[in-house]
Computed example of a mutant assay.
Amino acid sequence: MASVFVSYSHEDEALRDEFEVHLSMLKRDEAISVWHDRRMLPGDAIDDVISSYLSDADIVVLLVSPQFLDSYYCYEKEMLAALDQHEKGISRVIAVILRPCDWQSAPFAGTLVAPTDGKPVTKWPSSDDAFLDVVQSIRRVLEDHKTSDPQQAEEMDNHQTSKTNDPEPRSSNLRIKSEFSEADKDKFVDESYDYIKKFFGNSLEALKSRNDEIDFRMRETGDDRFSATLYRGGKKVSECTIYVGSDHRSRTISYSDQASGHSNSYRLSVRAETDDYKIYLSSSFSMYHDRDKKLNPEGASELFWSELIEDIQ
């Protein structure tokens, strides 16, 4: 069993919780054990305990964000020590980019960076997809370690089994359920619509700048409603209207494949829903439901954008 040390900023605790949930199968298979500072006990000497678990770690996961890079403790105490162990072959470092930040010049940039291509977790259509990608990277590291050095892998298992410095083990899954009001959901819908509108404006500008034959028209057609039209060689090839509306259940953000002003017909829509821990966007159409469940605003933007651009791809 490999010991995994998680280094993170407390401002990213919610994302750390999500990440640990995705490690469940690795823990059930007894492939890993996970430790982070929320597992310390009252009265523990913080520096000594953290240093002990870090030095004993087989894999160190850095959950990287602007706050992580800004944290003296995360950067100077944990990351630099982890990289020193990595260079000596004592442990492996995996940097997980949680949110956009200037990480490319950081000392860990030459190690394994996840998710794929260092795309931040929050920029994926779904954080579930992003963390699954991270877990698959961890599985590859574990498998590579076993096949490349079986003796060291056996020593790793024996070492982990013999650890006795955790006299009162407890779960690190200490999340509690949250309650979200209708006002919270309405605010999320409004913020998501604003994000989608900005996303479309930037995407249309980028598309035009890279393709001389492409032009577009984007305009407000009412409160919480805009339309976009794509032209190729002066000929209209695709159009849409995106607007905030409502149905019998809740407020929605809908996509119509017509730029006809105030038409309330739509091709697909998303609404704010909640689980026990967060608010997310979910498609109301079964054909999208399984693929794109629990979308963030960028995920919904990509879903709508793919509809608009499909005809010219």
Score class of each variant (00 low, 15 high):
Phe5Leu: 07
Phe5Arg: 09
Ser7Gly: 07
Tyr8Trp: 06
Glu11Lys: 15
Glu11Phe: 13
Arg16Met: 09
Ser24Trp: 00
Ser24Thr: 10
Met25His: 04
Val34Tyr: 03
Arg39Val: 12
Asp48Tyr: 09
Asp48Thr: 11
Leu54Val: 04
Val60Arg: 01
Val64Phe: 06
Tyr75Thr: 05
Glu78Arg: 01
Leu80Gly: 00
Ala81Ser: 13
Leu83Lys: 00
His86Met: 08
Glu87Gln: 13
Lys88Ser: 08
Ser91Asp: 11
Ser91Asn: 01
Ala95Lys: 06
Arg99Lys: 14
Pro100Leu: 12
Pro115Asn: 00
Asp117Arg: 08
Val121Ser: 00
Trp124Gly: 07
Pro125Gly: 08
Phe131Met: 05
Leu132Val: 14
Asp133Lys: 05
Val134Arg: 00
Val135Ala: 02
Thr147Ala: 10
Pro150Val: 10
Gln151Trp: 14
Ser162Glu: 09
Ala183Asn: 09
Ala183Lys: 02
Ile196Glu: 03
Ser203Gly: 03
Glu205Phe: 14
Ala206Ile: 12
Lys208Ile: 12
Phe216Ser: 04
Arg217Trp: 10
Asp224Arg: 08
Arg225Tyr: 08
Leu230Tyr: 00
Tyr231Ala: 07
Gly234Ser: 12
Gly234Ala: 11
Lys235Gly: 04
Lys236Gln: 11
Glu239Lys: 03
Cys240His: 04
Thr241Cys: 08
Asp247Pro: 11
Ile253Phe: 02
Ala259Ser: 04
Ser260Asp: 10
Asp276Leu: 09
Ser282Cys: 08
Lys293Gly: 09
Ser306Ala: 05
Ile309Ala: 04
Gln313Met: 14
